[in-house]
């Protein structure tokens, strides 16, 4: 039964990806009416328009263009950037690495911190430290990412001069230089992502903590540590894994802002530039990568919560 459910989730994930590709394709190819007109803007002449249309394959029906686009994308042919004419694959290559490094580091730092803090807050509800954590994380999730980043720049770069205010990489920094450059965007993302994870971990544990079997454990004289770690945590693992995956997915939007504000040469920055110059093939490719990652993470979360449920692991 469990394998069946996991397979089903994978199938749903795959179907979602297809739908995502349709949305991305539709939004960028069909909605605007005449892309060629928009791309060329006022400089359009009938000749250039026709040429661009043919180049974009726009003289063919929509579904043909969709399938050829999807097919090309599947084999790694992401098309050619409108600006500069470089292949998108080459543009994306290095940028993606940068973004992955950043996201990986954020995950590595924030997951243990969040779970520890979330658990700790859930174990001591109502204490002033719990209140501080609850209030602090609530404020953090209520404000835009750029607010956190701006405040950090103000304090750490402008007032204290500890860190540089940008994270622009030239490619030949020393390791310490690299660390200093990365520190600010990392810190911003860790704060933003952790706040959400701490809140949800705490809520997940507390939710489990109001179940009758926790009261029973209290009445059996089980110590608090053991109640949380053995009785509550195992039941909250599904939700917590979910939270982690969701927030790693949430990194996507954080990355967009942070890469912009700190001029970090990542994929998101590339995409924003693409949006500003209306380089649609580039936007399509970046969007597919981001959305694909997101869908994959959500799928992982789903599967993890299925695996952590004894009802499904141990059928009747």
């Amino acid at each position: 039964m469990m394998t069946q459910m996991v397979l089903r989730r994978i199938a749903i994930g795959f179907a979602t990806l297809i739908v995502v590709s349709i949305i991305v394709f539709l939004a960028t190819s069909i909605l605007p009416g005449d892309v060629a007109q928009i791309i060329l803007g006022q400089s359009a002449t009938p000749e250039t328009l026709a040429a661009l249309r043919a180049e974009l394959g726009m003289d063919q029906p929509g579904y043909v263009r969709y399938f050829s686009w999807l097919g090309n994308m599947a084999v790694g042919d992401l098309g050619i950037s409108k600006a500069g004419g470089a292949t998108i694959a080459s543009l994306i290559g290095g940028r993606m690495g940068n973004t992955m490094v950043m996201a990986g580091l954020v995950a590595l730092i924030s997951i243990p911190i969040s779970i520890a803090l979330g658990l700790w807050a859930a174990m001591h509800p109502g204490t002033w430290l719990d209140r501080v954590v609850t209030f602090g994380t609530m404020c953090t999730i209520s404000v835009p990412e750029f607010f956190i980043a701006t405040i950090l720049v103000l304090i750490l770069a402008v007032e204290l001069h500890w860190l540089p205010s940008t994270a622009y990489l030239t490619g030949n920094e020393s390791f310490t230089e690299l660390l200093r450059a990365l520190a600010m965007p990392l810190l911003t993302l860790v704060i933003v992502v952790s706040a959400q994870m701490i809140r949800m971990t705490r809520a997940g544990i507390l939710n489990v903590m109001s179940s009758p079997y926790i009261e029973m454990a209290i009445l059996k004289g089980v110590p608090r540590r053991r109640i949380i770690l053995r009785h509550a945590f195992f039941n909250a693992i599904g939700p917590i894994v979910n939270v982690i995956a969701l927030n790693l997915a949430y990194l996507v939007s954080g990355v967009v802002i942070v890469e912009t504000i700190f001029a970090y040469p990542g994929l998101a920055k590339l995409m924003i530039d693409g949006v500003q110059t209306r380089d649609l093939p580039l936007v399509q490719a970046c969007a597919m990568i981001f959305c694909g990652t997101y869908v994959l993470l959500i799928l992982l979360a789903d599967v993890a919560s299925i695996l952590s449920n004894p009802r499904l692991r141990q059928p009747k």
Binding site: V252, V256, C291, Y294, V295
Partner: peptide, 10 residues
């Protein structure tokens, strides 16, 4: 199933 900011950007 898509990040909101991505949809906005697209």
């Amino acid at each position: 199933a898509l990040p909101t900011i991505m949809l906005g950007l697209i």
